[in-house]
Design a protein around this nucleic acid. Structure first.
Lengths: 167, 167
DNA sequence: TTCTAATTGGAACATTATTCTATACTGATA
DNA sequence: TATCAGTATAGAATAATGTTCCAATTAGAA
């Protein structure tokens, strides 16, 4: 048990009620953010204006957090994904914050989750190859002083990876 | 050890050499895919044409896999993330394919990784709450007949989550 | 140097996003 | 049922952006 992590709300406004049309728009934009408003409108049997307004509302409400270009890691020589499990020695607020600050500064760390179970954190680390991971381990994780235990699990293949949360 | 997973290449063309300008473009588009070509050009001290051509090449080469709207799960009532670890009884090609086909069909499964270690797969499951996860477990995972062992790890907070792989 | 191929700038053009206004709808009230 | 207020919508006008074209420039090889 620990009290680490950062739960700050980053929404611009309060919650928003989404109807079926909003959901449909989200589903389409999750797959292809470059779809034009007119194409969206045609699929939903609407004109451009309501689609445009609905998207704008969802952006402002923080429902749509970001539009991102998704890059294939293997194409930029980052073919190895490793899940790195870490438990800390000190779980106090101060020690935890320090660890988080350092971890999040590493560009190799795509994801850092505060988890239940025997470990405190799971990192998803994206690197070129095993040598690069070894160096990350030694030079970056190895420099942190609050790590009690560490375990690496290697990703052999990606069966499914999506950003779609709307269904 | 197993031979599961699907490593098919989905690139449109062969590999491509990326220079510093390409990298810079990727980094910016990973953060904000809606940034205009003219803004990108201004940041890179180029005109619109070369930026446009470079993006097009990276799209066709599969370096840019997708443009996606990233939705905040908590805003659409999917606030609980669970890591679900699974090991199979049968690891043959046929049994593995069947499992993969079923798992990837579940919309709650955001991610499915074939991993090293005591388990065969890690699923990242995104649901409303604990009750919804319980139902997913019973009604969907529970219907699969090839599962030997299963373990759930709950995500208490997300410290870092990025799609940036270019650095 | 000279040549070739690739890259670039800037203008022209095509497409799309965005705004505006009038109309249609919805649900509540009397 | 009639009327009203608030919201959502379509369609046209405008602004912004994407896309193409071509001439000029650059970089590298012979």
């Amino acid at each position: 048990m620990n009290n680490l992590g950062n739960n700050k709300k980053d929404s611009t406004t309060d919650n928003i009620a989404l109807d079926e049309k909003d959901i449909a728009i989200l589903q389409l934009l999750e797959e292809d953010a470059k779809m034009t408003i007119r194409d969206l409108a045609a699929k939903l049997n609407l004109s451009a204006t309501p689609v445009y307004e609905r998207i704008r509302k969802m952006e402002q409400a923080g429902v749509i957090r970001q539009y991102a270009a998704i890059v294939d890691p293997s194409k930029i020589d980052k073919a190895l994904t490793v899940l790195c499990y870490i438990s800390l020695k000190e779980h106090g607020k101060k020690a935890g914050s320090k660890f988080i600050k350092e971890i999040t500064s590493f560009p190799e760390v795509m994801e850092c989750l505060n988890i239940s179970g025997q470990f405190d954190f799971m990192l998803k680390v994206q690197v070129k190859d095993m040598l690069a991971y070894h160096e990350f381990n030694v030079n970056k994780l190895g420099e942190l002083d609050n790590i009690r235990h560490m375990e690496s699990v290697f990703v052999m293949s990606v069966i499914k990876a999506t950003h779609r949360v709307v269904y």
